[in-house]
């Protein structure tokens, strides 16, 4: 008996994607082991609002000096987190991190020419509500060049990390913005073989949800792997 929804082959990007140079020495070559039907991967951590600070979901302000705000187009990213069986995932921890509006990360190892914004840290975290919904405020990140053997530029993107109910549902991915001309040129995004799968990582402009004269909304729904809720069910007596 397995409690995890099997993964469709060719849906996720393969470990080895030669056009994304860093995969060449980091992709395992041996076939992975099949997970037994029960394991600690079927349980997972539980997070609560006590784990979060009041400004954790507001990247405009969570690194800014008093009375100041991050530079860049003001956006709000929102959506719903469900599992593959369309059940809302409540209390899911979503961690986000990104470059600033000029495409520069607040990271020791990022040496890009674009300056840091003294009022932008570039990270945040939120929990999904009782319907699986989430939202955070940030600025639209800029594209930036990266060393991949040629003239490579990342499309504007936001990194997301999600904890669902089970460790086996862990998802780390990136959100891109509808209409970004760098999208078809990105070897990281294009490592995903199917166009309909790549499209799932594109946030849509959501004019109806914008705050007029304030903040543009982008919609990004997320689906976590389907998993049964009671991983260590004991066998009924007599079986």
């Amino acid at each position: 008996m397995t409690l995890l929804r099997p993964r469709a082959p060719g849906w996720h990007p393969p470990a080895l994607a030669p056009d994304y140079r860093s995969t060449r020495l980091r992709a395992p070559t041996a076939p992975p082991l099949t997970l037994p039907s029960a394991g600690v991967e079927l349980t997972g951590p539980v997070f609560g609002h006590g784990d979060l600070g009041p400004l954790d979901g507001d990247l405009h302000l969570n690194f800014a000096q008093q009375g100041e705000s991050a530079l860049g187009p003001r956006i709000r990213v929102h959506g719903k987190v469900v599992d593959e069986d369309d059940r809302p995932v409540t209390g899911a921890l979503i961690e986000v991190w990104q470059a600033n509006a000029g495409g520069r990360y607040r990271h020791m190892k990022d040496g890009y020419l674009a300056p840091l914004d003294p009022n932008f840290g570039g990270c945040g975290r939120v929990l999904t509500d009782a319907e699986g919904r989430y939202a955070f405020r940030t600025i639209q990140p800029g594209p930036y060049p990266w060393p991949n053997g040629g003239n490579d530029w990342r499309p504007a993107h936001i990194h997301l990390s999600l904890f669902g109910r089970a460790f086996a549902q862990r998802l780390v991915t990136q959100l891109y913005f509808e209409g970004d001309p760098f999208i078809p040129h990105c070897p990281i995004l294009c490592a995903i073989p199917r166009p309909e799968a790549r499209d799932r990582l594109t946030a849509r402009l959501d004019l109806d949800a914008t705050e007029p004269m304030d903040t543009v909304a982008w919609r990004f729904d997320i689906v976590l792997r389907g998993v049964a809720q009671t991983p260590f069910e004991t066998q009924p007596e007599g079986q």
């Binding site: 849906w11 996720h12 593959e84 990390s161 780390v172 991915t173 997320i222 689906v223 976590l224």
Partner: peptide, 9 residues
């Protein structure tokens, strides 16, 4: 609906 595809951290 299928899982959201993964990308590198």
């Amino acid at each position: 609906m299928r899982e959201t595809p993964s990308q590198t951290a």
